[in-house]
Design a protein around this nucleic acid. Structure first.
Lengths: 111, 111
DNA sequence: TTGCTATAGAACCAGTTAGTTGAATACTGG
DNA sequence: CCAGTATTCAACTAACTGGTTCTATAGCAA
């Protein structure tokens, strides 16, 4: 499919299981068995999620005996944060035109 | 599927067409015809993308004669930015353990 | 070796997505 | 009302996703 980096990053973040995996990995690396433990799903499913995260560049894998520990690599999040940051003014600014517009819409609808 | 807000937001952002629509809407509201113009795809397809953005809460729609203008509503991006921000230290801190680890990995692989 | 543990691969399935085309609807202007 | 413009709906399709199960591989330990 050859999709761009940013799309892959956002797509990876769009699944709550994968976000939870990243949250866990923020505490330190872990192998699949440990990562899978809190979830009601097979190891293979977690392994697939890890592969998605890996192909988004958000985790790297290692080898430690039988274990394949996963490490968080947050670097792709930088571009994602940068993209979103461009919209910060639209939600920070409570007096901007959009806000007025939305208020007006709501008023009209509830009138 | 009844998915959570954050997942819907990230999923909406995972498509480059939809991100481009949001970028356009950051300049001001626009109707479907105008929004569709830069894309090689039918109006119906753009209309569908708008519905995804709308159900993610990222755009609201109005009515102006035959036109159904779309407005940016960036508020859901706030939670998305907040989620990502928790990882900021992982990419900002060039001396953290992960970075060392990744460097070590690379060294080992290229050795 | 042999067997155990941890993980990945392959095949499969149901549901979703992103697009199409063609028909239907909503509004305006004469 | 009628014709035209803007948009959506419905049905369809191909590809992708998130899960399963079953099998295969990798590494350790005896």
């Amino acid at each position: 499919m050859q999709v761009d980096e940013l799309s892959r990053t956002f797509a990876a973040l769009a699944d709550p299981t994968r976000r939870a995996l990243l949250e866990r990995l923020a505490q330190g690396s872990a192998a699949v068995g440990e990562l899978a433990e809190p979830f009601e799903m097979t190891f293979a499913a977690v392994s697939k999620h890890l592969r998605v995260l890996e192909s988004a560049g958000l985790v790297s894998r290692g080898r430690d005996a039988q274990y394949r520990p996963a490490f968080l690599d947050a670097r792709p999040l930088r571009a994602a944060a940068a993209w979103i940051d461009d919209y910060r003014r639209f939600w920070r600014d409570s007096f901007d035109a959009l806000d007025d517009h939305l208020t007006a819409l709501t008023d009209k609808e509830t009138a």
